[in-house]
Design a protein around this nucleic acid. Sequence first.
DNA 1: ATGCCTAACCCCGTTAGA
Length: 253
Amino acid sequence: MKIASWNVNSIKARHEHVLRWIDSIKPDILFIQELKGIEENFPKSDFGDRGYHLAINAQKTYNGVAIASKYPINVLSDSILDGDDQARFLEVEIENIRMMNCYMPNGNPVDSEKYPYKINWSNSLIKKINLLYKKDISFLIGGDFNIIPTINDVHDPIKWEGDALFRPESRALYRTMHNIGLYDAYRIKHPYETDCYTFWDYQGGAWPQNKGIRIDHFLLTPDLADQLKSCDIDREPRGWDKASDHTPIIIEL
DNA sequence: ATGCCTAACCCCGTTAGA
């Protein structure tokens, strides 16, 4: 089973890229983040024509997540924080595997209300992870975590010091998920590699110079980690004309 | 030095992203 995750930075602006990519890679399941528009902006019939079921959690202008799946989707939840007005979460069950698609908050600037929101949101997810893990439920989390896990995941650690994506407190959140017992699918298959990123800023020639960060992840419970055949970042779509600033990550179970 | 991109929405300049 091939499962992918991609922050598309507007489904309206990127739907041709997304369709071109799924026609080439043919993922069984795709987690999408940053729809940046209402459900009507989602090209539902194009996905339907290709045999995908859909679960969509969208809002106007901001955020928004969706799951496209060749298998039927049982939606369990669309919120991780009580009273959250931002569409950032989808929890589903597909083929007896619990799956969570997350667009975690960015948190910048760190002296604004956005930073505590990031921390609260993440802690709420951690509580959920802990609960499911203790119940011995098999699950995976994929999406845009907006966390750079370690210095091996950023081209210039000094430059990113203090940024909400890389400050010690943010890295500690990621480490907590790991310490509970989840595994970073990319690092299972590529433990030593550096300069492997999922995001490159539009500014300053970041992409041609490979000045990126690794912030899009899949985390797996141990039983799923044992089933992991591959995990790769597909850099190709980042080089396309009018690209998203993120590129897809793919796992195979 | 938050800007040297990009997208949405519409106060077509401002806000947000990361």
